[in-house]
């Protein structure tokens, strides 16, 4: 880019930037705006609320329905994330560092699962979980979440693990470490950022799921927020649930926004590193 066009180039990029930001933010701002509208102004079609209120938030936090769903969402996503990252880290370490039979098979299987149509699992899981009595339980959702999060975790983590120079592990062994010590004291501290990033990605995945959440639950016992949203009725049966739905939607969007704001760099590197070969 020639020097004399710098200002103009900056302006051009600036405009494009604004376009992207608007494109990305408008739907989010819109639902936030709806959540702050009073019932009277809810249908005025205005992008910015004319009258602001927090009533919608009060309503949802007063109803057991939403609070229960929020607890389910947080609990299920956290447990699934923890397990998926731990199992994924073990497998990714083995894949990127060790030589053992069946390694390619594992990589192939997880790739297959990453592309798997989840709906194909809904019918058998529905039936199997009913037989195992885990239908409509946390476990019933955690299991498929772990399964579909594992390929993501394994890919992202093996990409991170591969960036850690091989020699370090050799050096640790030469310095007198066992394989276990080499992992704990040398590789793990270096892998921590990767683990953290992977945890965020996996959490977002679990937090997001809708299909399993509505298929494998039937009551408030384990229904997560995305699934509960469509069963929302508002404070009473006859009230328009729009404001409540929007408030609930905003609440579950907050963690995502926080992640994105604080860990943008990590998320980008996590998503891109797993995607590029080598």
């Amino acid at each position: 880019m020639a020097v004399e066009t710098t200002t103009r180039a900056k302006l051009r990029w600036g405009l494009l930037d604004v376009l992207v930001v608007v494109f990305a933010l408008v739907p989010v701002l819109w639902i936030a705006s709806l959540s702050f509208k009073t019932p009277a102004t809810l249908t005025d079609g205005n992008f910015i609320p004319r009258e602001w209120t927090l009533d919608n938030y009060r309503t949802i936090f007063d109803t057991d329905q939403f609070v229960r769903a929020l607890v389910n969402s947080i609990g299920i996503a956290l447990i699934a994330t923890l397990i998926a990252v731990v199992l994924g880290a073990m497998a990714a370490y083995a894949i990127s560092r060790l030589d053992f039979p069946g390694k390619k098979l594992l990589v192939g299987v997880s790739l297959l699962i990453a592309m798997f149509p989840q709906v194909s699992l809904v019918s058998p899981l529905f039936e199997i979980e009913r037989q195992l009595k885990i239908f409509d339980t946390w476990l019933g959702l955690i299991l498929p979440y772990i399964t579909f999060a594992l390929p993501l975790a394994i890919y992202t983590l093996s990409a991170f693990f591969k960036q850690i120079p091989w020699d370090l592990e050799k050096a640790a062994k030469m310095d007198g470490a066992t394989q276990g010590q080499a992992f704990r004291r040398v590789i793990a501290p270096l892998a921590a950022p990767g683990l953290f990033t992977t945890a965020i990605l996996v959490f977002i995945f679990c937090w997001n799921d809708f299909l399993f959440a509505i298929s494998l639950t039937s009551t408030e016992r384990s229904r997560t927020v995305p699934a509960a949203l469509s069963f929302f009725t508002g404070a009473s049966q006859f009230e328009d649930p729009t404001g409540a739905i929007c408030a609930a939607a905003v609440v579950i969007t907050v963690p995502i926004i926080l992640f994105v704001l604080f860990f943008q760099r990590r998320i980008v590197s996590g998503l891109t590193s797993g995607a590029v070969k080598g």
Partner: peptide, 19 residues
Amino acid sequence: VRTSALIPYGIVTVVAAFS
């Protein structure tokens, strides 16, 4: 730009769909 672009990626699909 990168932060804004990540929001659609991260947001719960159902939330966006309601919007």
